[in-house]
Structure formats: C-alpha cells, structure tokens
C-alpha cells in the first residue's frame, strides 16, 4: 500500500481543476492506497462551505462526500486559512498546522500538486 498526497493550491472558481483534483483523489484510492488531500494557499477556499451554485458553478459536493466516506484525510493549512480570514470548513476537513501538513508530504510515496 502506498501513501499518496494531493495538494490543492489554487482558487476553486472559474475552473474545474480543483473538483477534478478531488475526483482524481477518489480514483487513487481504488488500488487500496492511502490518499490524503491538503488544501493550502488559495486552495483552502475549496474546503469552505461556499455556495458557487449561486453563480451557476457546480460545487464539488459529491467529491467531498465520497472522500469522507472512503476515510481519506482532508487537511487545510491553518496559516493559509488565517491569512484569508476563513473560519468555517466543510465537515471532515481538519485545520492543521504546517508541521501536520509536512508530515503526510514527507511520509508519502507520491505527492501530486494539482
């Protein structure tokens, strides 16, 4: 079993990239590898209870539901959250310090910045 970490760093609106990063993360569990998703920099907005459907953009609701169901670790960088004044996260996303962001990265066999 490998450890795989996916790092989501960019703004989630006007692009499907972040939703695709999450869909890919679901896919990466299919060979029993352990997948962790890290949200940092502007990527933390992806893990907030925003309502992009108001501007006609599909939120990655299903991707989060399945990642939670598959018990993947979903980590948001506290420093990135603080800089942006974000205080609320989606259920199952855990706000963690940099040390806890570095840990899964250094322990992973594969790191995919997306």
């Amino acid at each position: 079993m490998k450890k795989i970490t996916v790092v989501v760093r960019n703004l989630p609106l006007n692009t499907r990239r972040n939703a695709e990063a999450l869909r890919m993360s679901v896919g990466l569990t299919l060979r029993e590898d352990k997948v962790t998703v890290i949200f940092m920099d502007d990527g933390v907005y992806t893990a907030t209870p925003a309502r992009p459907e108001i501007i006609g953009f599909q939120p990655p609701k299903k991707e989060f539901e399945v990642l939670s169901m598959l018990k993947c670790s979903l980590l948001a960088d506290v420093l990135s959250l603080g800089k942006r004044g974000i205080t609320t996260l989606l259920p199952d996303v855990k706000a963690v310090n940099r040390e806890d962001i570095v840990k899964p990265i250094t322990e992973s066999d594969i790191v995919i910045p997306f």
Partner: peptide, 15 residues
Amino acid sequence: SQYDHACIAADVDRF
C-alpha cells in the same frame, strides 16, 4: 478511467 491512474500510481517505482 481513474482506475488506470490508480494502477499506474500503485505499480510504478517513481511518479
């Protein structure tokens, strides 16, 4: 499919 991606990730030495 994404399953093929999972197979590549699981089977390679470097990614």
